[in-house]
């Protein structure tokens, strides 16, 4: 009972943050106030969800929502990219709602008897959370670029971070996500070597997808280093990479 009331509290807070972010786009006055309240609601949702996950279902798929929420909170608090909440709050609401509707939230991801496997899952989830964060930043970057290029200056009053800040944070997220994903793949590989029975047929597809995503991110990062520094290309490629990752994620959940 307490588990569900906590879940619904965080769901309500994420939904409230989404509504407030929507209000930011609709109002010209008190935009700052709406954005600040949205941030507080989002942070409240993050804290409530974290407490719920850690107390009741530490091995559930809700971990991903929690990780995404923390990435959003960190981006808003430490990098002053509060607009990221506009993308992550509805996403967190949707994922949480899906979990609650289909009761997937309180179900363990896979067998959790091995520390190695637990580490692998945790790292993979962190990698995915940063990838989702990168996707939100990519959307934010392309949106801000569109405003400036197409001179849609009526949106300029909205507290959007500068393009270069979003670009830097996007690359930062990609690097961190890539590192997590790399270590997750390594730990997964070691685990499957130690427990050969774990490499069931169903897992092969997931591994293929995970490797494809890893390769995709590697390609983005290398191309950014080798060729001219174009955050727009990075943003577009990140969106594509995220779609791949989403497919891998849903495959993991509903296989």
């Amino acid at each position: 009972m307490l588990f569900y009331s906590s879940c619904y509290t965080s769901l309500s807070l994420f939904a409230l943050a989404s509504v407030l972010e929507l209000a930011v786009f609709r109002t010209t006055l008190r935009r700052n106030l709406c954005q600040r309240l949205a941030l507080y609601a989002f942070m409240g949702g993050t804290v409530t969800l974290s407490a719920t996950v850690l107390l009741f279902v530490p091995h559930s798929a809700l971990l991903l929502t929690m990780a995404v929420a923390w990435v959003g909170t960190a981006a808003a608090l430490f990098f002053k990219v509060r607009a990221i909440i506009a993308f992550l709050a509805p996403l967190a609401t949707l994922i949480l709602l899906l979990h609650l509707l289909f009761s997937a939230g309180n179900m363990p991801l896979t067998g959790t008897n091995s520390a190695m496997l637990n580490l692998h899952i945790l790292l993979a989830i962190c990698g995915e959370a940063f990838a989702i964060g990168a996707c939100a930043l990519a959307v934010l970057y392309l949106w801000q670029r569109h405003i400036l290029k197409k001179k849609l200056l009526k949106w300029i009053g909205i507290e959007m971070p500068a393009l270069d800040r979003i670009g830097h944070l996007l690359l930062f997220c990609l690097w961190i996500g890539f590192i997590f994903l790399t270590v997750a793949l390594l730990t997964g590989a070691i685990y499957s070597q130690l427990h050969s029975h774990a490499l069931a047929d169903g897992l092969r597809l997931k591994i293929t997808w995970a490797l494809a995503v890893w390769g995709w991110y590697l390609a983005i990062l290398i191309s950014n280093k080798m060729r001219t520094n174009s955050p727009r290309r990075v943003a577009r490629l990140s969106l594509g990479g995220f779609l791949l990752l989403a497919l891998a994620f849903f495959g993991l959940l509903w296989q």
């Binding site: 006055l29 001179k151 200056l153 300029i156 955050p231």
Partner: peptide, 22 residues
């Protein structure tokens, strides 16, 4: 041109008019 953002007087006036309206 990619990564170049150009604004002229009309754009600046659009910003100032909008701010005046606010």
């Amino acid at each position: 041109i990619e990564d170049v953002y150009l604004f002229d007087l009309d754009d600046l006036r659009q910003v100032t008019d909008q701010n005046l309206q606010a």
